[in-house]
Amino acid sequence: MNIKKVYRELFRIRRVEEEIARIYPSDKIKSPVHLSIGQEAVSVAVCEALVPGDIVFGTYRSHALYLAKGGDLRAMFAEMYGKVTGCARGKGGSMHLVDIPAGFMGTSAVVGTTIANAVGYAYGLKLQSKPHIVASFFGDGAVDEGAFYESLNFAHLKQVPLIFICENNGYAIHTPQSARQRDVNLCDRVGAYGIPATRIESGDVFEIHRHVQEAADALRSGQPGPFFFECLTYRWKEHVGPNDDFDAGYRSREEAQAWMANDQVRLAGEKLSDPERMEVEQNVEAEIAAAIAFAENSSFPGASELTTDVYEESEQDGPDDFVWRGDTGGHGSGDGRGPIRDAIWSGC
């Protein structure tokens, strides 16, 4: 991995989210924000192992993933502001970022849902003999959901080209993993499905990358998927919103200290010379300032946007085959060739 690039990615995500937190009290951001501050390394490490054409699926906490996968920053800020120039035209919000050209599929606010979607996408790639792979991101809370286990089973059954990434930050909202799962070794569970499962405890961007790169290479060389990684990490901010919440009682600042001392953004920056680092930082700051200005100056969607994009717009009255079917009368006495079940078969 190119250290300068890694630092740029990490620093950029950190600063974008700090800016979101700064702007948030102004109420210009019309969306609940689930910040990834503290968790940047996982997205950056994984996306460094992906190539254009590879696909990621994430969650409502996916600002980091969106940016790491190459999502458009201006469109992201505009989406936060609910502007028509947003990545979802102001119809998605922070929890539903999307950038299809970048391979960042739309995210879901319902825990666990995109896991199955990622598996289906990977199956589709395989069916169409496309050379790409999929990464599916979710939290430690999502592994409580039944859909997770159903997805593991099917992914393994069909050997899809996919990497599961569980970002284990220890909490689902305010409930620690230990209150939801007894003595859990997640990798044992996943391993029981026959899926290679690795737990990475360090939070180290280079270590995560090394493991995921190996899995990605294996998939690209035609080895059967999927692979599973549990990446320990830590959320610095409250579950949703821009603030700290160490005084709320469900977790302690001491617990966070170790992770803050292990801050991957700072550590990566320290690997660069001062001029190199400053160059990166200046460029990122300028880009962010421009993106915020873009969002501020963009318009809200017009009234006509309210009901578009519900269905594909199509010419309803195009040429149609809607011919009179004759007096079939529904009594089974028609002179036709067959019953409905044959018609359905023939339709397939």
Binding site: I55, F57, M105, T113, T114, I115, A116, N117, A118, V119, G120, Y121, A122, Y123, G124, L125, K126, L127, Q128, K130, G146, A147, E150, S151, N153, F154, L157
Partner: peptide
């Protein structure tokens, strides 16, 4: 590959249909 019986997983298999549709398949 194109026609198959599934595990008894209505939730995830519906998610799979959606993901496949996103990838260019018509499930």
């Amino acid at each position: 590959e194109r026609v198959f019986g599934t595990p008894l997983s209505e939730d995830a298999m519906t998610g799979v249909a959606i993901g496949a549709a996103l990838s260019g398949i018509r499930p």
